[in-house]
Structure formats: structure tokens, C-alpha cells
């Protein structure tokens, strides 16, 4: 038996919005510790990994580990039927888990919607993500990162990210011209969520597809801050932390011939 009741149901709605364009089908791996999902996009360029810890639910019950194979587009359609303030409960019977039950309670508890989502068998590759000491870790406002990606998409399909000392620089070059945005590290004690924090072991310069980065920024509503982790010749990690877990996107770099 699996049961997970999320008081902040709106979070699940936002979470689905942040993965559904990257991944079509995925397994939700449920265990005592929580709900996890790991999936690559069709072209194997990006990987998304998310975790919702069991402590974030009230209550959370999962007798033994099992996987719920879900078409994310279908789940997203059903979640659109939940109000932003609804409490969302997910239920599945592990013996015959061919469907996932969802119930949506409004805050007054006088309207309850109940839905069933058919599950599917998904044979998914699982990758082991190595523990990495990144050369550069940047914490910055998530809205700023979203704006930079959106703005530079006007110029090019790819962006070079250079991190050195106290500056992160995003550069795009395309047929119409070029553009770059430099952010200096700042510290705002009053508003830490508005500051740019750069932790640097050594300088990094890497190129990435803006199309994928734009997709990752669908996670912006989940957190005021985004964490970017870079190392030479390694995938970029873009992370949005939530109270109850995280969503991490990994993007393979573009490398010169």
C-alpha cells in the first residue's frame, strides 16, 4: 500500500510542469524514504532527478518499494483539475498497481475530487550519478537565470558559461550578432534570495544548449534560488531546492571537435 498526502498540493502541480516537456514517461520510485524519479530526455542529452522526502507528506505510507510507471503528460492533465490550494493525496495498491488514485480536497474540505490514472510498464535505464566536487558552484536568483536564458535565446542556440573569481558570464554568438551578461557576486544580508554567490575552485568555461536550459527554467516557480554546478568536461547541474526535496537537471556539454 502506498499513500502520500501533500498539504501543499500546488507544489506537485508545479513539479509536473517542470518535467513534462523534458520527459514523457517515467517511473515514480516509491520507498519508505520518499518518492524519487530519474529520467533522461529522448535524445539522452539531459537527465532529470527529483526527490520528495517522506517527511514532507502527512501522512506518508509505503510498506515496500515499488515503481509507478506514469505518462507525465496524462498526470499533468489530471493535476490541472486540482486547485492550487488543494490537498493532494496519491494512493496505489501494490498488489494490483495498475492505476494511481488521486484525490483533491479543497482547503474547506467541502469539495473532494477523485481521479484514477492508468499506470504503464516503463522499462527505464537508471544512471548512477557520481558524487562530484564541482569546480564552480553558483547560487543566484532563479528568475534572473530564467531571464538570461530567455534573452540569450534571441541571439543563439547555445551559451558559453564562464566562471572566474567573482564573476559568472553568459555569452551567446549567433548569425545576427552576439550578447553577453556578466553577474558579479553580491551579498545582500537583508535579501539573501536576491544575491549571487560564487564558490570557485578553479575557472570553468563550458558550452550548453539554450533549448535545454530554457526547459530547465520551468523549475523557476519551485524556488527563488537556483544552484548551478560546473566542472570542466562534466554535465552542468541545475538544481531547485524545495522544503520537501529537490529537482535536479543535468545537461551534457557541447564540446569542440
Amino acid at each position: 500500500m502506498f499513500e502520500a498526502r501533500l498539504i501543499q498540493g500546488g507544489l506537485l502541480k508545479k513539479l509536473l510542469e517542470s518535467v513534462k516537456e523534458l520527459v514523457t514517461d517515467a517511473n515514480f520510485d516509491c520507498s519508505e524514504s520518499g518518492i524519487a524519479l530519474q529520467a533522461m530526455d529522448n535524445s539522452h542529452v539531459a537527465l532529470v532527478s527529483l526527490l520528495l522526502r517522506s517527511e514532507g507528506f502527512d501522512p506518508y505510507r509505503c510498506d515496500r518499494g515499488f515503481s509507478l510507471g506514469v505518462n507525465l503528460n496524462s498526470l499533468n492533465k489530471i493535476l490541472k483539475c486540482a486547485g492550487n490550494d488543494d490537498i493532494i493525496t496519491l494512493r496505489a495498491d501494490d498488489n494490483s498497481a495498475d492505476s494511481l488514485s488521486l484525490s483533491f480536497e479543497n482547503p474547506n474540505n467541502d469539495r473532494i475530487g477523485e481521479y484514477e490514472l492508468k499506470l504503464m510498464d516503463i522499462d527505464q535505464e537508471h544512471l548512477s550519478i557520481p558524487e562530484t566536487d564541482y569546480d564552480a558552484t553558483i547560487i543566484m536568483p532563479s528568475a534572473e537565470f530564467q531571464r538570461i536564458c530567455r534573452d540569450l535565446t534571441v541571439v543563439s542556440e547555445s551559451v558559453t558559461i564562464d566562471v572566474s573569481k567573482d564573476t559568472i558570464k553568459f555569452t551567446a554568438e549567433g548569425e545576427l550578432g552576439s550578447g553577453n551578461i556578466k553577474l558579479k557576486s553580491t551579498s545582500s544580508i537583508d535579501k539573501p534570495e536576491e544575491s549571487v554567490n560564487i564558490e570557485l575552485g578553479q575557472d570553468v568555461s563550458l558550452q550548453f544548449s539554450l533549448k535545454y536550459l530554457m526547459n530547465f527554467t520551468k523549475g523557476t516557480p519551485l524556488s527563488e534560488q537556483v544552484i548551478l554546478c560546473l566542472s570542466e568536461k562534466m554535465p552542468l547541474l541545475v538544481e531547485y531546492k524545495m522544503d520537501i526535496g529537490y529537482i535536479r537537471y543535468y545537461l551534457a556539454p557541447k564540446i569542440g571537435d
Binding site: 533522461m40 542529452v45 548512477s128 551534457a252 557541447k254 569542440g256
Partner: peptide, 14 residues
């Protein structure tokens, strides 16, 4: 010229 690498070049299968 740039080549897009694949994520499975970096992360091994389990």
C-alpha cells in the same frame, strides 16, 4: 564546430 555530448557518456548505467 561544437558537438553535443550525451549524458550517458558521463553517468554510468546501474
Amino acid at each position: 564546430n561544437l558537438t553535443q555530448t550525451s549524458i550517458d557518456n558521463f553517468f554510468g548505467r546501474t
